[in-house]
Design a protein around this nucleic acid. Sequence first.
DNA 1: AAAAATAAAAATGTCGATATTTTTAAAAAA
DNA 2: TTTTTTAAAAATATCGACATTTTTATTTTT
Lengths: 229, 229
Amino acid sequence: METERQNQAVAAYDRLKQDIVAGHFRPGEKLLMSHLKERYSLGTGPMREALSQLVAERLVTAISQRGYRVAKMSLAELEDIYDARAHLEAMIVGLAVERGDEHWEAQVIASAHTLASVAEIRSPEEMLSLWDRRHQAFHTAIASGCGSDKLMEARASLMGQAERYRQLWLRQTVFSTEALAHKREEHAALVEVLLARDAARASQMMLEHLQTPVPIITAVVRDAHLVAD
Amino acid sequence: METERQNQAVAAYDRLKQDIVAGHFRPGEKLLMSHLKERYSLGTGPMREALSQLVAERLVTAISQRGYRVAKMSLAELEDIYDARAHLEAMIVGLAVERGDEHWEAQVIASAHTLASVAEIRSPEEMLSLWDRRHQAFHTAIASGCGSDKLMEARASLMGQAERYRQLWLRQTVFSTEALAHKREEHAALVEVLLARDAARASQMMLEHLQTPVPIITAVVRDAHLVAD
DNA sequence: AAAAATAAAAATGTCGATATTTTTAAAAAA
DNA sequence: TTTTTTAAAAATATCGACATTTTTATTTTT
């Protein structure tokens, strides 16, 4: 058993993406080739390869002969991403309710339980990352019932684009006992409707559930001066 | 006014993608670096950049240290892509009917008219490419009413993955007077429902409309031995 | 025939040469 | 003096040649 050996471009892609999402490089910031090469200690070839991947994912913008920049964030983009994600996921959930089998049901119940039992026994940061991971696993478990790899890929692509905005929402929600309790209720209600196999209602609930973060993020984005407009 | 100067990686990406979609490189075929460099006359850097783009689009597969191959085609993938595309587009059409303005209506009517008036005055190949372009423009005009760039991107991504399969359907349909007439009817009925602003019905019609190519492509794929299974 | 050693082919990565863009400084005009 | 224009310099992006590492094919040995 040995770890799959990956090339430098992939390694650079992972690290740079992490740095952008975590805010080490800020929206709109110039990504200087010489700086990136030094930071990740590699040559121009693999670096450009990693950058062009991130361009395809809309996390970086490129202009020929003028280099790369971290993609800007905007309220318009925030709204578009969350609207698209909500409608896509609502559609997927409808399919999942129609198509999901017993194994799917079991996964949904299991991940819901695992998520609900996250307690504040650890440090705030650990609690945050644990809840986040389990929350994402919960939603992924629900969506996977649609049985379509391609729809799951489209979903993953939108979630990747949402990630920088989602990070802002996460802290607000997890560190608020009130907000967290409310999410717990929403999740419980969602599971109930899923198991009742009510496709239309599940779809509608998911649509609303996924739109709730927008006002919260809007406020944070404005405060943190992350956008120009 | 001068043409935007694009780099070699983008040029190579365009040409290679075209070559794959048009079948110059067949599914599963090894993409030898030395051969590609010669064919497109450029160095390894830009070539790898272009290849990694196509990997992200699922048109090429890569194994670290073992190079690149044209992604295989399969009946399972065909079904998944068309199922995903149909459900995505059905959802988008529902939004378009709800959100589309007068300008959207005008665009839909205009592109429907342009499509319907394709006549066999040119050579078969010209006729094919003309009908194809207008057909795509028609569907894009409808979808654009959803008003979401991100949904349009997700749609474009799926269409890109469908392209190799769609090419097979195109010839069968355009060169059959019967099939073409049937499509014309479907399109006319679709426009009618769109303008009547019946979201549920439009969505359902689009779902069915986009699933009709699957049996046709299945037959061609089997005949042409494009898949292993 | 199976395993090991060797040779050939291919993929990956670094580096420096070249072209382009941006910045800075100087000169000219308002 | 301030603004605009022009020219030079610096910074940067892009690319392909070359070197290194890894995989694959071939031959030799047991």
